[in-house]
């Protein structure tokens, strides 16, 4: 599989179809992989793909906008690429998507498969230019059981839960920096005029940061779990991103990255939208 992947990228680079290829390479130990940026056709031998390739490489596409890129994507990462194209961050012609069949990725800290891989319906990548390997999709639809369970709590309990979680937050901004759709060059969290966010690290301010970030990525978040994996203090950000996915599905019947022709829910409107809750 690695061989096939390397050959495709080698060919693309040799024929000058792309300037850069972004893939995975082995890092400091057996279980670690890191993003690899390859510019030379003779340098492709270091590219690999295995079950520890957890990063969403869609993240780097907005950082190399002026170049033609080839990017190695798991089925779920393709959703991110599509979402970014919809937002006109780059054009489809400038990116070559190399889909890799994936059997689910493991978190090397716990050795367990990520929760998102359980009911994965894109083990066989869809919409890629090249596909390597074949995967077997899950038949079960995505479930939101933990979100539904959480929603049953009273608002007081919810607030207490999040306050406890955000007391842990050290505001390292890893969740934002690793998020492929958080590409604003000037993030509200960094602005000082006006200062939306106090620079103090306390539970309330942390909560405010996460609330606003979640609002900003609504309908664009592909629930790739990059933020959850990156968090050094294990805040269950999945509970938030899944909520976003659930709301997009239930309120607007929208699934991020699924269909190239449907605009994100907040970028458009329908005159027949419901207004049951409006006074």
């Amino acid at each position: 599989m690695d061989k096939e992947l390397q050959e495709i990228i080698k060919k693309l680079l040799a024929e000058k179809k792309v300037d850069w290829a972004i893939g995975y390479e082995k890092a400091y130990d057996e279980l670690s992989t890191r993003p690899a940026f390859v510019q030379d056709a003779n340098d492709t031998a270091r590219l690999i793909f295995n079950k520890y390739c957890i990063n969403n490489l869609g993240l780097y596409l907005t950082k190399f906008k002026k170049n033609k890129l080839a990017v190695v994507c798991k089925g779920c990462d393709i959703a991110t690429v599509f979402e970014l194209i919809k937002e006109k961050q780059f054009s489809r012609e400038n990116v070559v998507v190399i889909g890799v069949a994936c059997e689910g990725v493991l978190d090397k800290k716990t050795g367990k498969q990520l929760e998102k891989c359980e009911n994965c319906r894109v083990k066989q990548p869809k919409g890629a230019d090249f596909t390597v390997g074949t995967g077997k999709d899950s038949a079960a639809p995505k479930n939101f059981l933990d979100v539904v369970e959480f929603e049953k709590k009273s608002s007081k309990e919810k607030a207490e839960f999040w306050n406890r979680q955000f007391e842990k937050c050290i505001r390292c901004y890893a969740c934002r920096n690793v998020c492929p759709v958080c590409y604003c060059p000037d993030c509200f969290a960094n602005r000082t005029m006006p200062e939306y966010l106090n620079k103090n690290v306390d539970a309330e301010e942390n909560k405010l940061f996460h609330m606003i970030r979640m609002q900003h990525v609504f309908g664009r978040c592909t629930d790739c779990k990059a933020c959850d994996t990156a968090c050094p203090v294990n805040i269950p950000l999945t509970l938030l991103t899944k909520k976003l996915a659930k709301d997009a599905k239930e309120l607007f019947n929208y699934e991020s990255g699924a269909d190239m022709d449907v605009l994100p829910p907040l970028s458009t409107y329908n005159e027949a939208d419901s207004e049951s809750d409006i006074l």
Partner: peptide, 14 residues
């Protein structure tokens, strides 16, 4: 469109 989503998200945060 923003209203129901924001209401739902705020509720999720308590």
């Amino acid at each position: 469109r923003r209203y129901p989503h924001l209401k739902s998200l705020l509720e999720h945060f308590g």
